[in-house]
């Protein structure tokens, strides 16, 4: 709170003010009106304020695509890099600077198609970062091409007669990777749930993978309307160890189902079912974390380093 970061006590600055929402806002988001990305941006800015994350200690790393413009709208540090490559960059940031709060913003094409290899390995590294997968089932920025998560039969500019393959299921995939530690799903239009999920992800000390169902009202309006109007379609996973939104949000769900997030077998069954479940599928707080592997070896003093180099040179001495 009040901008204090206990992970970096040397930076203790009692004169610092309380951060408001405005301290995290930058520019005007250029997403289409009605795009689901706007509500995620609001939720994340609210999280930053609630957690009083110092803007200079917070980094948003993204790839390429509509959602990957996200860092430009946050008044924190940001890294808007290459298509599909947000994960390696974010891992490098977190590895070198465990004191920074790292968020990854990626889309269905960025994460599940061009960046799929890095995605699987980032799950395995399990470094402490919050991953927001904006899944709108379509390529928006390049003007409506089939995405790896597009439903079979989706009409797009690359498949004018309908896409021909079943989609990648990001939750199912993530749950299939060794060392997955936090796997959750939410949706942009259930704002209370969206916020509660991002907050739970932020609080998890590991790789928090959050798939956010996001509406693309421009290219996928029909699907967007269907997702919003069909309340029966959404099932909220409930558990005291799960995502627990406010009362008002709970009332929005016609259907709820109890699910213990330590039960990975049930989590996989849920991920594979025809219905859409929102909530925490799986959490393992004890999974090994790669950031702990390296952190203690960084920032040595000059004397210690010189001694180690000279000892090594001795081995080659004539």
């Amino acid at each position: 709170m009040f901008g204090l970061n206990t992970e970096c006590i040397l930076d203790l600055d009692t004169t610092r003010q309380y951060f408001t929402l405005d301290d995290y806002k930058k520019g005007t988001a250029r997403w289409c009106p009605g795009c689901g990305d706007h509500s995620v941006l609001s939720a994340v800015q609210k999280l930053c304020r609630e957690e009083q994350l110092p803007p200079e200690k917070t980094v948003f790393v993204s790839g390429i695509g509509c959602s990957s413009r996200f860092p430009h709208y946050m008044d924190t540090y940001g890294f808007h890099g290459l298509h599909g490559r947000a994960f390696p960059v974010a891992c490098g940031v977190k590895f070198r600077r465990p004191d920074l709060h790292v968020f990854v913003v990626t889309g269905d094409g960025d994460c599940c198609s061009i960046g799929a290899g890095a995605w699987l390995h980032a799950i395995r590294y399990n470094m402490n970062m919050t991953v927001l997968l904006f899944d709108n089932n379509i390529y928006g920025m390049t003007k409506k091409q089939t995405s790896p998560t597009s439903r079979m039969g989706t009409i797009s500019n690359t498949h004018p007669h309908g896409s021909v393959l079943p989609p990648v299921n990001p939750i199912q995939t993530t749950l299939g990777v060794a060392n997955a530690s936090f796997v959750a799903q939410t949706a942009d239009w259930v704002r209370g749930h969206l916020y509660a999920t991002i907050k739970a992800g932020y609080e998890h000390k590991g790789f928090s993978f959050i798939r956010i169902l996001v509406r693309c009202t421009h290219f996928m309006n029909e699907l967007a309307n269907e997702m919003i109007s069909n309340k029966e379609h959404l099932i909220m996973l409930s558990h005291e160890q799960g995502i627990n939104p406010d009362e008002a949000t709970l009332k929005m769900f016609a259907r709820q189902e109890a699910h213990d997030p330590t039960d990975i077998h049930r989590a996989r069954q849920l991920a594979e079912s025809e219905e859409v479940h929102l909530g925490l599928f799986y959490q393992d707080k004890n999974a090994p974390k790669y950031d702990q592997y390296g952190a203690h070896n960084l920032g040595f003093g000059v004397d210690q380093r010189m001694a180690a180099i000279n000892a090594e040179l001795d081995r080659f001495a004539v």
Binding site: V59, R85, C91, G92
Partner: peptide, 12 residues
Amino acid sequence: AAIGFAIGSSYA
């Protein structure tokens, strides 16, 4: 990923 990681680490 090797160079991406190095760049992320350099950036930070």
